[in-house]
Design a protein around this nucleic acid. Structure first.
Lengths: 229, 229
DNA sequence: CGCAACGCTTGATAAATATCAAGTCAACGA
DNA sequence: TCGTTGACTTGATATTTATCAAGCGTTGCG
């Protein structure tokens, strides 16, 4: 496969600093593939044959147990999954599915491990990526264990409002159903949590969120950089 | 500090395979220190100046928000904390305290990063350690999000019973209070959860747990290798 | 166009979990 | 030895969250 196909990949943080030799070694066995929405990419328990990188679109990492399912992560470009399984050569702990039409880069795990051994720059990138994901996971757990569902939603709104520029409104970028699962509640409960935030100036209309008093909402949410940033 | 002091350290998985030069570079600035029980070792938000390794004793990683506190991890020898913060040179996301008298190895983060850059064997160990912790964190989150508190307790009992040899009884190795927090519930609720498991042959007497029908308990708990192993 | 499917909401109810308040018991120190 | 402390338990109650059941509105498709 010609390297030109991977120009976009070359620019990703994980690959931008590595040597040409390492890069071509990684790309030799790599794919870039387009997937339609709602396509299951990997299933938890499967062997970790490929490292995946989201080049475009939205991908959900989720997990199931005994009839229940929960959304663990929502990935945008250029998130990776599931690095830890690739490194350890162990089964995936999470399943992944596309939420939108997505472009996914798949690199054989063996190649990752090989290049990792020989290229300390790549090793550093891998570690950085892994550390980011790990810290993200800890934040998620803290959010779930330390806050009620209304507090989690309030902080989600504060964060995404700021992320969208803080102009008093923003648009939810995932289905409410999915958001509910990510925040660890049922869709019904999410509706009620939004209703509870009316007292703090949150108006919901479809996927548009209007904040009439961001300061009040923030005072209620009490965002904390060791959970939310 | 003479290297002989660090014989026990040398044997740890993180250090057993690295070169003598790398090892002495790491130990040059390292301490080994004894702490009494209930001593706070690091506080979340602090800069990550040292990588810590538990050489003996029990250490709790915990986190707080707005008057609430939750136990995130219970560490025995030879667990490390908090590697991700050390690597990323970012503040700790978790606090740590000793639960028992403990012996802790502290290695300056800068040295870790330096040796990491030059020694690919060490880099590999670091990555393996990080991947293990990351996967542990994902399991914990899955456990919390996918199971009720009684189910979490049932699985905890099944797991620790097996770990103790499966002879029909075992001893809890942490306070029930702490266990409750780790499992994401209040102490009162833990008591009631134990009471609920009586139906499945679980008898509690102090810190001793007796299982009269392990098969029944296991059928109820439905342990799952992608959460519990 | 009209129908079906689906996401979302709302209400009623139930289940899970937390809180508050005693009370027991064992460990520990004066 | 006594008294205190603190972990643990139990009961009563409140809060939080989930479940079940309609119903509404939009989307997409025959």
């Amino acid at each position: 496969m010609p390297l030109e196909r991977f120009e976009e990949v070359r620019a990703l943080p994980l690959f931008s600093e590595i040597s040409e030799a390492s890069f071509s070694a990684l790309m030799r066995g790599a794919y870039v593939q387009n997937f339609p929405p709602h396509t299951e990419l990997v299933t938890e328990g499967d062997p970790a044959d490929f490292l995946h990188v989201v080049a475009s679109g939205w991908v959900e990492l989720f997990s199931s147990w005994s009839d229940r399912e929960t959304c663990m992560t929502l990935l945008r470009p250029y998130g990776t999954f599931i690095l830890a399984a690739t490194i350890k050569d162990r089964p995936y702990l999470l399943s992944a599915r596309t939420l939108t039409k997505s472009r996914i880069i798949m690199i054989p795990s063996e190649d990752i491990r090989d290049v990792f051994d020989g290229d300390s720059v790549f090793a550093k990138s891998i570690v950085r990526e892994l550390a980011i994901s790990y810290r993200e996971s800890i934040r998620h757990t803290k959010n779930i264990k330390l806050r009620t569902s209304v507090e989690r939603l309030a902080n989600y709104v504060v964060k995404h409002h700021a992320h969208a520029g803080g102009g008093g409104s923003f648009t939810l970028d995932v289905e409410k159903k999915k958001l509910a699962s990510f925040l660890g509640m049922t869709p019904e409960n999410l509706s009620r949590a939004f209703a509870a935030l009316k007292n703090h100036g949150v108006e919901v209309s479809g996927s548009t969120i209007l904040l009439s008093d961001p300061a009040d909402l923030e005072a209620f949410a009490r965002p904390y950089f060791l959970i939310d940033d």
